[in-house]
Write a protein that binds this DNA or RNA. Sequence first.
DNA 1: AGAGATGTTGCGGGTTCCCGCAATCTCTCT
DNA 2: AGAGAGATTGCGGGAACCCGCAACATCTCT
Lengths: 238, 238
Amino acid sequence: MKVLIVEDDQFHASYLQDALAEALPEVTEIFRARNGIEGEEEARDGGIEAVVMDLQMEQRNGIEAARSIWTERPQSRILFWSNYADEAYLRGIARIVPEDSAYGYVLKTASRERLKLALRAVLVEGQIMVDRQIHRMQKHGAAPRSGLDDSEFSVLLDLALGLQDKMIAERRGMSLRTVQNRLLSLYEKLGVVSALDDELTLNKRVRALNRALVTRTLNIETLEAAHRDFEAWLARRK
Amino acid sequence: MKVLIVEDDQFHASYLQDALAEALPEVTEIFRARNGIEGEEEARDGGIEAVVMDLQMEQRNGIEAARSIWTERPQSRILFWSNYADEAYLRGIARIVPEDSAYGYVLKTASRERLKLALRAVLVEGQIMVDRQIHRMQKHGAAPRSGLDDSEFSVLLDLALGLQDKMIAERRGMSLRTVQNRLLSLYEKLGVVSALDDELTLNKRVRALNRALVTRTLNIETLEAAHRDFEAWLARRK
DNA sequence: AGAGATGTTGCGGGTTCCCGCAATCTCTCT
DNA sequence: AGAGAGATTGCGGGAACCCGCAACATCTCT
């Protein structure tokens, strides 16, 4: 059995390699990649179907790499292994998991035992295994911690890019007023108003982005990915 | 000689501990803290004047911890050790380094040799040692990569918090129109306009924050720290 | 079928933002 | 001292934003 480790931090990679060798004696070869792009290549060239994937990497992050790996081989088994329990990552992963593939999500703070368990459960047994702390965010597959629904979330992404109401309306196929209603509820749910001293009026749009970031509803990588998506949409629209 | 390691990642901490023992035989005791708050306490209680400090930590980050350590003991020697070469961190550090104290900045990607060198140079010899990749950002102590000057940078912080022009003017002691001029040049320098397809008008404030983040001029911790600063200012102002 | 909750849309107006124009102010250099 | 470059400030207006109000549209229970 061949396993690919995609991880840019050398300490974490070697710890992982250790745990892997220990937990899965059936592993014959361990490949290593340092970012998403290398990861995709290795997976393709090596015909690998078991991957342990870090999320936060330079260049091309784990979600994007996973997406293209799954596009080529939907049956690949991928264990995500990350420092953060950001909702932003969860949303990203939830969106790309193929119908019946095996995947897992383990935090780097998890114990060695739990990591080994997850390695076996996902890579060998083909099960789904998600850290409880992360899973708690998801209520039956949607509506994570912040309580944003999908349409609110996509408006948030557009807002975060700096799009104006009119453009958001066009992109998402809503009327202008509806977009504004979404913004209203975003401001509500993100705690834009209560955030600081009352008596104090803020620029709500900027504040919304700020709040989304500090609550980990968005992170910087999400912004970068959203930007790429938007450009693709722009080009397609013509 | 006593040394304090402030680092929340266990792998990194033990690697560091190893390197420390290897490079500095004169070290008799190694203390360990997992975040800024613990770090400050340990430093105070243990009477420690040699610290290796991670920057990105939950709760209270390395810059804030360093500030209060230096406030109590300006002669403390602190080696910052971080994953990122973000301008945001650089600015933070530059602002709090006492007149003649020793400090250093090493990236986690640096070789073990270079780390050991820095440990010796900063903690034992009391020199200043900054990674070249980081130092390149600084031109004689100011004006990092993005080319923002200090007044532009502080307006950027306020903008990022969601403050309105009027409030920024009050906080920074500028006229309203001057604030707006600063914003103008921020938009210019951050590439707010050219960013996407032209023909496309954006919400400049949000876009400015977005650009500041993806260019690493700001990061999320900066936002959190700026928020705390602002609240302190608010309270003081009355 | 009807009542009620929830979501969508248009209108209107008060605010804030963005920025051109022009009048100082401040500094530097000769 | 005086010229010139650059920053600071006020004014004014067009555009975008925020949001209350009210008319419908949809969905869900009973």
